[in-house]
Design a protein around this nucleic acid. Structure first.
Lengths: 195, 195
DNA sequence: TATTTTGGTTTCGATGCGAAACATTGTTTA
DNA sequence: TAAACAATGTTTCGCATCGAAACCAAAATA
């Protein structure tokens, strides 16, 4: 399929541009791409997903390496660690104002944001649907940890106008939390093929 | 624009998956992501673009770093260097069979290839058009070195059924070379706004 | 011919990275 | 309850990449 090759080239080129722009932005703060990814992630994840272990899964690195990255960001004053009250092994990470500022300024990258803003809403929404479908397809393929939006999860049960129930943790949460990234995310997919 | 944020998230997630998969594939050959990118690039670029300097621009790294990466790949037997006959400063890089094999197997990543193959051709071609438009938009924004396909270049002049003329280098080349990536690529865009 | 620019290599110090050993807390099992 | 096991995070070690700067050779320019 000629289409396949071409789309791969385009995605590859886009993600290179993406990465170069992000790297440039990071250098001005003395941060490496990996550190920025941590900031981006923490800026968008929910309360089940703000631990070092979740960051490690998201990055796909070892826990030792991840621990170092987190300590570095803490020393630079971009995030804070607080111990979980239930499980004394785990820490919860949260961005400081300085950390959040960098994340907001850097992601999405300015060039991408401007390009998308220039397009019509119609074009953008079909692009969004297609990318989403593609991502779901790939994740089913690789059975990867999905890190999807909470509200698209199999455990997400709407309750009323303002609340929903997470059936995994049995917690009631405000609707707006459904827009955050969750590490426990399980894709809501109907699979007729029982193999 | 909610659309913008969502599309950025999707692209970011796609490129992370992309990268993790490529990194895994590379580790099995003892190669780092950067080395694979060099192989991918050399597997798709044209004869004006197969030099260390072009690779450096493509990677966005320094020439020292790039030089080391290239030497490593040469020592592992994945590429060969030959001196240019005209300009005795420059080298031309070409993949060995082993190098080409790795590039072909790894890029596009299997999961992406399979996901795209499952889609209809219609869906894929609209996705392709939208991604291409987006990429062009971003490149005009950032005035980045574009590294586009030769045949979409301002200097690409079709001559007859089998040949075209590159007006930058004044060379006549076979049509199929127009499908390769060129470092000198200048986007063919009509700009009515003369500012 | 003298100077500057360009393509590429080498060296150095800093730093990210994976692997493995370790400490602490939770969970399971006997 | 006691012991074994698992999970979360940290520390240490050696290796490899990275950017910066010094360096060399060839080409372009003045």
């Amino acid at each position: 399929m000629a289409n396949t090759i071409k789309i791969c080239d385009l995605l590859e080129r886009l993600s290179t541009l993406f990465r170069n722009e992000v790297r440039q932005a990071g250098l001005s703060h003395g941060l490496h791409p990996v550190h920025l990814e941590v900031l981006f992630y923490l800026n968008r994840c929910n309360l089940f997903s703000d631990t070092p272990a979740a960051v490690k899964d998201f990055l796909g690195a070892t826990k030792g390496t991840t621990s170092q990255s987190i300590t570095l960001l803490e020393n630079k004053g971009y995030l804070t660690k607080t111990k979980d009250t239930q499980d004394k092994r785990v820490y919860h990470l949260s961005l400081t104002d300085a950390g959040r500022k960098i994340a907001d300024q850097t992601m999405p990258p300015p060039s991408l944001r401007q390009a998308l803003d220039r397009c019509s809403n119609d074009e953008n929404s079909t692009l969004e649907q297609q990318l989403e479908a593609l991502l779901i397809d790939i994740q089913m393929e690789t059975r990867n940890v999905s890190f999807g939006l909470c509200k698209t999860c199999i455990y997400h049960a709407p309750k009323n106008q303002t609340l929903f129930l997470c059936q995994l943790t049995q917690k009631e949460l405000p609707r707006k939390f459904g827009e955050l990234i969750c590490r426990e995310h399980q894709l809501k997919v109907i699979n007729n093929n029982g193999t």
